[in-house]
């Protein structure tokens, strides 16, 4: 009864199904304030822990190191630095993308953490670790308090 050479479950007796469920996530106390700043003011904010002297981006309600509640928020600006990046050639379903997409971890000066986002208005060969990038926001009427209110980051001029 060795089935070890079968890698496709369709080749053994199987039962097809899915795990249907729809989700709606609240952004939370810190998340709601963060995304409202993006939506309404086009600002990227960080939350500062006065005890550990750390600025968290994205902001959090609490400091994970000392458990202080974080009340003081600071504007970290819309210019960041590419900490690392990847060039995606396939989509989430494994299909080939017509145009490669660049995804980067973008850090902000003086802050801990950063944002994962797309790099646009350039080509993969021009992207370098350490390069400065600027957030490009959607027009304000299209913003919904979501990470996609930022269209992408583009190389700084």
């Amino acid at each position: 009864m060795s089935l070890d050479k079968i890698t496709n479950p369709m080749h053994v007796r199987h039962w097809l199904g899915d795990m249907e469920a729809d989700y709606i996530y609240t952004l939370g106390v810190a998340g709601e304030r963060f995304f409202k700043e993006i939506k309404e003011n086009g600002k990227i904010m960080g939350a500062k822990c006065p005890r550990c002297n750390i600025i968290y981006v994205p902001p959090r309600m609490y400091c994970e190191k000392c458990f202080a509640k974080l009340e003081g928020w600071v504007d970290v600006g819309t210019r960041g630095v590419v900490h690392t990046f990847t060039v995606a050639k396939i989509d989430v379903d494994g299909k080939k993308l017509q145009k490669p997409e660049i995804y980067a971890l973008i850090k902000f000066e003086g802050a801990c953490g950063g944002l994962i986002h797309k790099i646009g208005e350039t080509t993969p060969e021009k992207v370098k670790i350490g390069m400065k990038v600027d957030a490009v926001f959607k027009p304000s009427f299209e913003r919904k308090a979501s990470i996609n209110d930022i269209k992408h980051f583009k190389p700084a001029e």
Binding site: P9, G17, D18, M19, D22, I24, Y25, E32, K144, S146
Partner: peptide, 12 residues
């Protein structure tokens, strides 16, 4: 504000 999502996971 909220985010909505429907995970696409099919099983055999």
């Amino acid at each position: 504000p909220t985010e909505k999502c429907r995970p696409k996971a099919k099983f055999a």
